[in-house]
Amino acid sequence: MSTMINMVRSLAAVAALAIATPALAAGAKVEIDYQNWSFAGPFGYYDRGQLQRGFKVFQENCSACHALSRVAFRNLAEDGGPGFTEDQAKVIAADYIVEDGPDDFGDMFERPAILADRFPSPFPNEQAARASNNGAYPPDFSLLAKARAPQRGFPNFVFDIFTQYQENGPDYIYSLLTGYEEPPEGMEVPDGQYYNHSFLAGQFISMAPPLYEDSIEYTDGTPMTVENYARDVAAFMMWAAEPHLEDRKKIGFRVMIFLIVFAGMLYFTKKKLWRNVEH
């Protein structure tokens, strides 16, 4: 009897925690501006032009502070990626300097990056990064679109199972990049920080507004607005975090078709085998 009571208590505690955690997240004053992404839904795919524009935003505006340490230059030319050719990826890699070695004398040396290398960090270590950013540590962009996805809370996460909504990470990044504004009247912003109504860790963020109108040149005719910059770099970060998204969705669709056909075959096989047996 005592064992049964303990099991009930444990289940109740787990249920309470599961309900309380989303409730706390839902109570936070975070404004999310939901976007329509090409990679959303079971048939989603990456927009190659958007990924290339997003890479341009990262390279010209974000790479001075943020690393992309889990992405190799060769990934830019792989299937499912931004659609660069191998020669274009080589040119991009050659603009970066990486540390290699040791050489025959045991010394480390620097050389231009090649396709096999990963994007080098702009700082040698975390302490140097914090020293250059007033104590704040710029996060690595590689997995940020997955790692910073805010909890949706109850009952939204239940609906997400049926709507297959998984884009809360890119939605949050877009909202954060476009969420800078003047603070409400009477609110004092600490020195070295900025007001952002979409920042998960509070309304004050150490990063200055990174995007401005017409600051990055688009050559494909896309309007050079903060909203487009934010949307494109968020899509690029989603690809960096999940480069095989298209393959995953294609395989998932094929598996569902197989399971439906297989279930039908099992049903008719059962009907045939048991047709002469009285029930």
Rank of each mutant, 00 (worst) to 15 (best):
G252A: 15
Q203V: 04
E213G: 01
A147I: 09
G192V: 05
P184V: 04
D87F: 11
M238W: 03
N75E: 15
N36T: 14
Q88H: 01
A113H: 05
F236D: 06
V8Y: 03
R74Q: 14
L200S: 05
S2M: 08
M7R: 12
F204P: 00
T219S: 14
A89S: 15
Q166Y: 00
F258P: 01
N125Q: 05
S10L: 14
T178Y: 02
A136N: 13
A93Q: 06
V277H: 12
F73A: 12
Y229A: 09
I173L: 15
V233R: 04
R118E: 10
P124V: 15
K56R: 14
P139A: 12
K272I: 03
G106Q: 06
Q52G: 05
F55A: 02
A147E: 14
A116S: 15
R130I: 05
A113E: 08
L259F: 06
M4V: 09
T225L: 03
Q127H: 10
G80Q: 07
G169Q: 03
K56H: 10
I5T: 09
W37D: 12
F84V: 12
P155H: 06
I114H: 10
E188R: 11
P155L: 11
K56V: 06
F58I: 02
F141S: 11
L259W: 02
H244G: 01
D47V: 08
K29L: 10
G252N: 14
T222W: 02
N6L: 11
N134V: 02
S63D: 02
D140V: 04
Q88P: 00
R130D: 04
Q193H: 05
A145I: 05
G202S: 09
A15M: 14
H197Y: 09
I19D: 04
Q164W: 04
G221K: 07
A147M: 10
A116C: 03
S175A: 04
G41Q: 11
N125S: 13
R118Y: 10
A23M: 15
F109C: 06
F39K: 00
V255R: 10
A113F: 05
L76H: 11
F39I: 04
E246P: 00
L245F: 01
R48E: 13
Q59E: 14
Y229P: 02
S198G: 05
Q164M: 10
F157R: 10
I173F: 03
